[in-house]
Amino acid sequence: MSKTEIRMATLDDAEEIYAIYEPYILNTVVSFEYTTVPLENFKERIRKITSTYPWLVYTVDGEIAGYAYCSLYRERAAYNWDCECSVYIKDTYHKKGIGTALYNALFQLAKAQGLYTIYSVICVPNTGSVALHKKFGFKEIGIYEKTAYKFGAWRDLLVMEKHLRETQGEPGAVIKSSELPKEEVDRILQNISVDVIAI
């Protein structure tokens, strides 16, 4: 049986992560980018996101098979307790439970940070992605109709929302993912990376 692991991403993972992401740019409407991203620019994205939020990779015998991360939802201060989530799986590893495992860990880390609400914005139709998010309790809250143009057609975006905790009273400060106690991070990642679907 293959050895699987979920761990925090590092900048050393950038090239392998980008190799998963690039086909989504060039061949799908999952990403709304049109062209390839220089590796240094992609590294800067990882650096910027991981300064606050978790970015996870799922490895199979050391190979990155998928990744997921939280990122800034909106810039104004009142949105500090919100984030947006994304998950990408390598084409040879679809439908093996990797997205589920990554999201299990990601959402626990986001809650530990003190975040309240997670959003996902999905180009529809995309039955697989919508089903994955509903599995985690996301609700459909609206559609941006014909908001983006790619591959010769105008595209709709579905907005989905998940609350991590009750929104009552004044929230505490959000903890940067890099400042979460190592013991708590290890507990979350190790508990989820055990007993995932055999590859």
Rank of each mutant, 00 (worst) to 15 (best):
K135G: 09
T117Y: 09
D195C: 08
T167L: 11
L189N: 02
D156Y: 00
E84I: 01
E63Q: 10
K96Q: 13
E179N: 15
K3S: 13
D91P: 10
D13W: 08
G169Y: 04
D13R: 06
L102H: 05
E44Y: 00
F107I: 09
F138H: 01
V57R: 04
E170D: 04
D195G: 02
S120L: 07
K162A: 11
L39G: 07
K48L: 15
V159I: 12
I118T: 14
E179Q: 15
G114V: 11
S120H: 02
K134N: 10
K139M: 14
E140V: 01
A19E: 14
H133F: 04
P38R: 07
K134R: 13
S2P: 14
P181I: 09
S120T: 13
Y119H: 10
Y79H: 05
R7C: 14
K3G: 03
A112K: 02
H94A: 12
V124D: 14
K176G: 06
S51H: 08
T92A: 12
Y53R: 00
V60Q: 13
I197V: 10
L39T: 11
D12M: 01
E75K: 00
K135N: 11
K90L: 09
A14Q: 13
E161C: 06
V196T: 03
P171K: 03
S177P: 07
A68S: 14
A105L: 01
Y69S: 01
R155V: 07
E179V: 02
Y119Q: 00
K96V: 03
R155E: 12
I98T: 06
G128E: 09
I20K: 08
E84Y: 03
Y24Q: 09
S31T: 14
K162L: 15
V121D: 09
A14E: 10
H163A: 07
S51K: 04
G128P: 10
S31F: 08
L189I: 07
Q168R: 07
P125N: 11
A65V: 03
A101K: 10
T50M: 12
K146M: 03
Y103P: 02
S177C: 13
C83Y: 00
P181V: 07
D61P: 05
V159L: 13
L56N: 14
I197Y: 14
G137N: 14
T147A: 15
S86N: 13
K90G: 15
Q108D: 03
V87L: 09
A68C: 12
I49N: 12
S177A: 15
A68K: 11
T100K: 01
I17L: 13
E44F: 00
L72E: 13
F151H: 14
P23Q: 06
I49D: 14
L106C: 09
P23H: 06
S193I: 02
N191C: 02
V30L: 08
